[in-house]
């Protein structure tokens, strides 16, 4: 058992293990539910290829391969940094990993079930469910949720104002018919908030 056979055996075992790891990482690149998952897997692929290059350097005796491995590591580092900047500027797409576009993690976890594999069937209906507020939900989901509550509050205000109008319209003929001074004095305070509500509603509706 010479020294050469020992290193050759170790190199062969290492090549087999690296090949299996390479295939598993490629599987993660294909399957990864989100873009950062794929970027991590690509970073991992660069590391595995550096291992391959080192093993080939040992096997063939060309130690110049080390420089190739170093430059490959530099390229992989720069690619990962560029991808990180891209992910930061792109923001998360709704339903990319199955979570509802509201974005609050509690609702996402409740909808997703227990594993990440059960996500993909729910990925399709998720954007349709959140259809009313799709565009504001992109950058900051919690803020968009508060915006949605604001919108519903505005709707409630409109409904209240309409109800107040109806009450006033119903009260005025009764007033004109009965014409009691005490009843008009009593009915004024409820009319004033309705008048206050009207301009704010008109400002928000356009």
């Amino acid at each position: 058992m010479t020294a050469n056979t020992i290193t050759q055996f170790a190199v062969n075992v290492g090549l087999v293990v690296l090949s299996i790891s390479f295939l598993l990482t490629v599987w993660r690149v294909i399957k990864g539910p989100t873009l950062p998952d794929r970027v991590i897997a690509l970073d991992m692929l660069v590391g595995i290829v550096m291992g391959f290059i080192a093993l080939v350097a040992i096997r063939t005796g060309f130690t110049l391969y080390i420089d190739i491995a170093i430059s490959l590591g530099l390229v992989g580092f720069l690619a990962t940094v560029a991808f990180a900047r891209f992910i930061l500027s792109r923001k998360r797409r709704e339903g990319e990993d199955g979570s509802p576009p509201d974005g609050s993690s509690e609702q996402a976890t409740a909808a997703n079930g227990k594993t990440s594999r059960a996500i993909s069937p729910t990925a399709l209906p998720a954007p349709q469910a959140g259809a009313p507020v799709p565009k504001e939900a992109g950058p900051k989901p919690p803020l968009s949720k508060s915006e949605a509550t604001k919108k519903t509050a505005a709707k409630v205000k409109i409904a209240k104002a309409k109800a107040a109008k109806k009450v006033a319209a119903a009260a005025e003929p009764g007033k004109s018919g009965a014409a009691a001074a005490a009843s008009t004095a009593g009915s004024r305070p409820p009319r004033k908030p309705a008048v206050k509500n009207k301009p704010t509603v008109k400002k928000e509706t356009p």
């Binding site: 989100t34 970027v39 590391g47 940094v81 991808f83 930061l88 998360r92």
Partner: peptide, 18 residues
């Protein structure tokens, strides 16, 4: 490698990946 991983994690967390 830690630098790139940190940048990627920060970007992913900031852009809302749960």
């Amino acid at each position: 490698a830690p630098v790139s991983a940190h940048l990627l994690a920060k970007a992913a967390h900031e852009s809302g990946y749960p």
